[in-house]
Measured scan of single mutants.
Amino acid sequence: TLFEALYDYEARTEDDLSFHKGEKFQILNSSEGDWWEVRSLTTGETGYIPSPYLAPV
Rank of each mutant, 00 (worst) to 15 (best):
E45K: 15
I27D: 00
F19D: 00
Y7D: 08
T1V: 13
V57P: 05
S40G: 02
L54V: 10
Y7R: 11
Y7I: 11
W35Q: 07
E37F: 15
E23L: 01
L6S: 04
I27H: 02
L6F: 04
E23Q: 08
L6D: 02
Q26S: 08
G22N: 04
E45I: 11
D34A: 11
L2M: 09
V57G: 05
L28S: 01
L41V: 09
S30N: 12
R12A: 12
L41Y: 06
W36S: 01
A5I: 03
E23R: 00
G44D: 05
Y48H: 08
D8P: 06
K21W: 04
S40T: 03
S30F: 13
I27S: 02
K24F: 11
G47E: 00
I49L: 06
R12D: 10
V57I: 13
Y48A: 04
L17P: 03
D16N: 11
S31M: 11
L41D: 03
L2F: 10
Y7V: 10
D15H: 15
D16L: 11
D16R: 14
T1P: 12
T46F: 06
A55M: 10
Y48R: 14
A11N: 05
G33C: 11
L17G: 01
S30M: 14
T42R: 13
E23S: 05
D34F: 15
Q26K: 08
E14H: 12
V57D: 06
L41A: 05
D16G: 15
E37W: 15
W35S: 07
Y9N: 02
T13K: 13
W35Y: 11
T1Y: 12
E4G: 02
A55P: 03
I27R: 07
A5V: 03
W35D: 04
L2C: 08
L6V: 08
P56V: 08
G44C: 09
D16S: 15
V38I: 02
T13H: 14
P56R: 05
H20V: 14
K24I: 15
A55S: 11
L17D: 00
T43H: 03
D34G: 12
T43S: 11
K21I: 08
T43K: 03
W35V: 11
G47N: 01
S31P: 08
P50M: 12
E23H: 08
E10C: 13
P50A: 09
P50L: 13
G22F: 05
T1I: 13
T46S: 09
R39K: 11
E45M: 14
E4H: 08
F25C: 02
F25H: 00
A55L: 08
K24W: 12
L17M: 14
F25D: 00
L41P: 02
I27A: 04
Y48P: 01
A5D: 00
N29H: 07
E32W: 12
T43R: 04
D34S: 11
G22Y: 05
T46Q: 09
F25E: 00
S40E: 02
W35R: 15
I49A: 14
N29K: 08
S40H: 07
L28E: 02
G33F: 09
R39C: 06
A11M: 04
A5F: 01
S51N: 08
F3E: 01
K21D: 01
N29R: 08
V57Q: 06
T1M: 14
P52K: 15
H20D: 05
K21S: 05
A5S: 06
D34E: 12
Y48D: 01
Y7S: 09
W36A: 01
T46R: 11
L17Y: 06
E45T: 09
V57E: 07
W35I: 12
V38H: 00
S31Q: 11
T42L: 14
K21T: 07
R39D: 00
S40D: 02
K21C: 07
E23V: 03
G44A: 04
E45L: 14
T42G: 07
Q26V: 15
R39A: 04
I27K: 08
S31D: 12
R39F: 08
G22H: 06
V38D: 00
L17Q: 03
Y53K: 04
G47R: 03
F25S: 00
T13G: 15
E14C: 13
S31R: 09
K24S: 05
P56Q: 09
E23D: 15
V38F: 01
L17F: 14
Q26E: 13
K24M: 13
Y7K: 09
W36N: 01
L54C: 05
I27V: 14
I49P: 00
D34R: 08
T1K: 12
D16H: 15
F19C: 08
G44P: 00
Y7E: 09
F25P: 00
N29T: 08
D8W: 05
K21M: 08
L54K: 04
S40K: 14
V38Y: 03
E4V: 15
T46G: 02
D15L: 14
L2D: 04
R39S: 04
Y7C: 14
T46C: 08
V57S: 08
K21H: 05
F25K: 00
P52I: 15
L41M: 12
S30P: 07
E10K: 12
R39E: 05
S40L: 06
W36R: 01
H20K: 15
D8K: 04
Q26A: 09
I49N: 00
G44L: 07
Y48M: 12
D15W: 15
F25G: 00
I27L: 13
T13N: 14
T42D: 10
D8S: 09
G47A: 04
Q26W: 14
G22E: 01
E23I: 04
T13Q: 11
E14M: 10
D16A: 15
I49Q: 00
T43E: 01
Y48W: 15
E4A: 08
L54F: 07
H20R: 14
E45F: 11
E14K: 12
I27Q: 03
L28V: 08
D8C: 09
V57T: 08
T46V: 14
I49F: 01
S40M: 06
R12L: 12
F19V: 07
I49Y: 00
L41Q: 06
D8R: 04
T1D: 12
R39M: 12
D15F: 15
A5E: 00
Q26F: 13
F19K: 00
R12M: 12
P52H: 15
I27T: 03
F3R: 03
L54M: 07
D15Y: 15
Q26Y: 14
Y53M: 11
L28Q: 02
S18R: 04
L41C: 13
E37C: 14
L17V: 07
T42E: 14
T43C: 03
E23N: 06
V38N: 00
S51A: 14
R39V: 09
T42Q: 10
T42W: 13
S51F: 10
V38K: 00
S31W: 09
W35F: 10
G33A: 13
S18L: 02
N29L: 05
V38R: 00
A11L: 02
Y7H: 09
E4T: 08
W36P: 00
R39H: 05
F19A: 10
G47Y: 06
A5N: 01
E32G: 14
V38T: 01
H20Y: 14
S31E: 11
W36K: 02
V57W: 08
G22W: 05
H20T: 12
L54A: 05
A11H: 06
F3D: 00
D34L: 15
L28H: 02
T1G: 12
G22V: 00
S51R: 12
E4C: 09
S31A: 11
T1A: 12
A11K: 10
E23P: 00
T43N: 06
T1E: 12
I49D: 00
T1S: 11
E10T: 14
T1C: 14
E14F: 10
S31Y: 09
H20E: 08
L54N: 03
K24P: 03
L17N: 02
Y7P: 00
T42P: 01
L41R: 01
D16K: 14
T46A: 07
D16I: 12
S40A: 07
G22Q: 02
G44M: 07
Y9K: 03
S31N: 11
V57R: 01
P52W: 15
E32N: 15
V38A: 10
R12N: 10
E10F: 11
S30L: 09
V57K: 03
Y53P: 01
